[in-house]
Every structure is written in structure tokens, then in C-alpha cells.
Design a protein around this nucleic acid. Structure first.
Lengths: 219, 219
DNA sequence: AATTATTTTTAGATTTGTCTAAATTTTATT
DNA sequence: AATAAAATTTAGACAAATCTAAAAATAATT
């Protein structure tokens, strides 16, 4: 089934809110999509009529099986294009979101299948987020945060969940990106902050920041 | 200046009609864009207000300098994406038009500059059509048709101007594509038809078809 | 439990791009 | 030159997606 650009944006927005908070609501979705609550309600009715949403006025809504599948396909398109923009065109990984947001609505299945093959069907995008396969299945990737791991082992950053401008600015300042090599030198039990080594430089990051930095063993 | 998808399609449509026939008119443009004459008139007013068109009601219209520049930038985006789809994703050259039609409206200048560099800033697209540079300048490519060249020289197809489904079907049947090697064996003065060798097979094509097949010396 | 505050939905207007049908202008033909 | 034909434009309607302002339902507070 083929959806409008607007419908796809709502489907994806609902999906992300459900992932983040367990559920979505009208106001949060309006905030996420930079639109107004009334517009959201209109679209909820449309998506509900297309069986993409379970929706009961005033009570709430959630993606149906069909809606979830549709969302995963859109997420796949978005992340493959992000991969392309970074790996092939050389964009910085923190500047590709807006462009991928447009590219994700273009063309049909054949384009995305060919793009996936061309890129080697990567499992994660440049932010470290997993890329669903053509059936909408998410690859299972062990996600462990910096906090959870033993000291002095060589780790590589695989994902950053909080992608607020503030967070990205901080990461940029310390030179932390996907693939960066990190060693945890010390763990302060008092506030959860960590002393780490990145790019051969020692620095301290808060427990709050560390919770959003996912890593895997490197080398 | 940033234009809507619809505006860009009209600008490009006018450009192509002007190239093909020397000028464009309301009905022809409606046909070209698969829309109605009334819709065309509406858009002409909008483009005229944006100084992209010289437009006098009932008398006619033509792109301004500014409109022409805008058209060439859109043509550049279209043809670079076509090149990408064929060279990198392995699409057949006669199947990429519709997808490029969507991709050409995505993103801003940086995306296209990076795409161009990534592709090696090619001078022609997979149909052999020239690709304007980032300033909208068309590369000058010697365009000679099959009819104009001496017998028994090895030629390579560089472009096909008539891209109707019928023409493409015929080319496909004979196995003629951009880059195909051709030798002209005989030129019948009576009706302009040509006996040629393609893919080691002799065949005869009409003078009408030959006029739309551009070639350059090969090897 | 009653009242206030928040969230969500409805009703009606707006914008962009499109359409049909009728009116107007230009072009062609007798 | 008058009339018919073709091309173009206007007027008004429509669909998708949005908005504001007001109404309705739910949740929170006293």
C-alpha cells in the first residue's frame, strides 16, 4: 500500500514515540511533528480508517500490526539513506537527518532494495541505530551503555540515543562519534559519572550522558 | 530561491518544450505535464509573479533568464540522479526516469554538489543527455546523428533524443543503447534508411529513427 | 463530589494545486 | 469581413493538509 508523505511522517512519528515512551498521545505527537493537536486528530482518523491505527476518540491510539510494519519500512528507508549520505557522499553524521527525511518518501520497493544491496545491507545507520530488513524485521543488536561495562576494556561507540542538539554538541566537543574508541578508567559511585579516555585524552562525563551512549567491545 | 515540487515540474516542462519546439504554449504544456490547460494558466501566473516567466495573457510565455537558470539546475539534479540509479544501483537506463523525477526535488545545493563529486561530475546522463554544471552551464558536446557520418567507421551511440515508449521499444529490440558500437554499412538515398551493424548483427533502420540517434567516433 | 485544569476533538476557515464548465481572445476558414 | 474553430483564461468548486477558536471529554485538585 502506498501512503502520502504526510501519512508516512505521522506513522513514523507515532512509531518513534511508542518506542521512546511506550505509548503516544495527541499533544506529544503534535510537538514531535511540529504541528497542532487539531491536525493530529484529523490524521489519526485517516490512519485509523486505513487500519494502521487502533484509535478510540479521547482514549488513545497505537499502531496496529499493519501500522507497525509500515513504520519499520519507512525507518528502513530513512536509515539506508542516512548511511548512503555519510558513507558515500561524505556528509557529517549529525547533518544527514533532514535530507534523509525527504529521501525516505521517494520511489518504491525496488529502489530501496537496490540501495540496500549497493550499501551492503548494513545493520546499523551512522548513528548506530539498527536498520530493519525488507520485511521490517529489526536486527537484534546487543545494546549496552557505557555504565554497564568493566573498566579498562577497549570499547567502540555503537549508538547514541539522545540526539538533542545539546547532546550532539557535547559529543562533538569531546570528539565522540559512532565508532570512537573509548576506555572507561573510573566509575564514581557517588553520582554515576565516568572518567574515560577518548582520542587519547582523559575526560569526565556525567552518568546521565553515559546512559545514552551505547558501546560494544572493540578490536 | 526555493520552489515547490509543482513549480519545479512546470519550470522543467517549459524548458523541455522550448528546447524541443523553440517555444511552449498552454495546451502543449498541459499535455506534457498530464494536467489541464486551466491548471497551467494558474501556474503561469504564479511563475510570472516570481519573475521566472515572461507572460502576457493569450499571447504566450517564455522562461526569463532567471527561469532558464532554475530549469537548468533542475535538469542537472534529474540527470545526476539518473546517472546514479544506472551506474551505482544497476537500474536499466530506460527505467530510471520516474524515480529521478522524484529525487530531483529533494534537498538543497550541498546534496547535489556532493552527489556530483561522488559520481565524478559526469558530462552526460545514461541517455547521453548533457548534464549542466552547478552554475547551470551545459557542456558542449558534439552531437552528430547516424545519418551524417561516413560508412564503415566504428561509432558509439551517445544520445537518443526521441524517448517515446515506441522508440525505446525499437531500440531495445535491436539491442541499441548508449555506448553501443555501430557501423553504418549502407545509406539508401531513396528514403534515407540505413543498413547498420549492431552487436555483430546487420539490421535496417529508417531515416526517421536515425535522425534521433546521436553518435561519436569510437575507439 | 465539585471545580479547575489539561487534553482532545469538532467546526469552520485557509492554502496549494487541481478540476469542470463557461467566457474570452486569437486564429483559421469560408 | 463574417463566422467557425481552436486556444486560452476566468469563475467557482474540490481535495488534502493545515490552522484557530470553541466545545467536549478526561484527569487532577481542592
Amino acid at each position: 500500500m502506498k501512503f502520502s508523505v504526510s501519512e508516512e511522517n505521522y506513522i513514523k512519528g507515532i512509531y518513534h514515540l511508542q518506542q521512546q515512551n511506550g505509548s503516544a498521545n495527541t499533544n506529544a505527537l503534535a510537538g514531535h511533528l511540529q504541528t497542532k493537536a487539531a491536525s493530529v486528530t484529523d490524521m489519526l482518523k485517516k490512519l485509523s480508517a486505513k487500519k494502521l491505527l487502533h484509535y478510540q476518540p479521547y482514549k488513545g491510539f497505537a499502531l496496529t500490526e499493519k501500522g507497525n510494519k509500515a513504520a519499520l519500512i519507512i525507518v528502513r528507508r530513512h536509515r539506508l539513506w542516512e548511511f548512503f549520505l555519510v558513507e558515500k557522499l561524505g556528509f557529517d553524521w549529525d547533518k544527514v537527518h533532514a535530507i534523509a527525511e525527504e529521501l525516505e518518501h521517494v520511489g518504491g520497493d525496488e529502489l530501496i532494495e537496490r540501495l540496500g544491496n549497493y550499501l551492503g545491507n548494513p545493520l546499523t545507520d551512522p548513528h548506530g541505530d539498527p536498520i530493519p530488513d525488507s520485511q521490517g524485521r529489526m536486527p537484534v543488536i546487543a545494546q549496552v551503555t557505557l555504565c554497564d561495562l568493566p573498566l579498562n576494556k577497549l570499547l567502540a561507540v555503537s549508538a547514541v540515543t539522545n540526539q538533542s542538539p545539546e547532546m550532539l554538541e557535547m559529543l562533538n566537543h569531546y570528539g565522540i562519534a559512532i565508532g570512537s574508541r573509548i576506555k572507561v578508567k573510573k566509575h564514581f559511585a557517588f553520582d554515576g559519572s565516568l572518567e574515560i579516555i577518548v582520542n587519547k585524552q582523559a575526560c569526565v562525563i556525567s552518568g546521565q550522558a553515559a546512559k545514552n551512549i551505547f558501546v560494544h567491545y572493540a578490536e
